[in-house]
Amino acid sequence: MAGTLRKWLVSVALTGGAASACTEPALRGIAIDPPRAAPALAVTRDDGTAFDLARERGKVVLLFFGYTHCPDVCPTTLADWSKVRRALGADSARVRFVFVSVDPARDTPQLAQQYAAQFHASFIGLSPDTLDLPAIQYAFGVTSARETGTSATGYLVSHASQSFLVAPDGALRVMYSFGARVDDIVADVRQVLR
């Protein structure tokens, strides 16, 4: 009896996995399961218009929290997005690439936008108000901290290295560790756009 039960459980596990794989391929990044509604993110852009994440329904939004004085992790992530955008071809018109500064003391909205646009003219750079930033970071579960005395070029900022994918239905669906493969991000974007 116990043997039969074990066989049944193994069979369910195997066929269940196979069925799931047939219906929807697994996301390649770190799936946020169950997906949850993306937190509010409304920031005034450099040109005075508002960026409101809630108004981006129907598009995929890739989000990253960094700072313009970062010489490594931030430009690497945005350079990878640049490759993602290229690989997506025509589908890239349905994707927003959004860089959010966690260093509003130095990053004006203009600087944040200029910084993001170095990687592609369509990339969006935001610098939230200093007073709004903690609530935004808390809602997304990311943190940052100023680290003083480590650099001759001013302070450094430790910050979350992950990026997020918000699906067209406004759900926070996937998180990517720093250095995630471009192909994996492209595959996930295509999957959630279907």
């Binding site: 490594d72 992790v73 680290e147 070029t153 430790s158 290295s161």
Partner: peptide, 20 residues
């Protein structure tokens, strides 16, 4: 450039730090 520093990026629990 005025300065050139040697840095190393350290990732701890998903948090990126830089060490000169």
């Amino acid at each position: 450039a005025t300065t050139v520093e040697m840095h190393e990026t350290m990732l701890h629990g998903g948090q990126a730090h830089m060490m000169a």
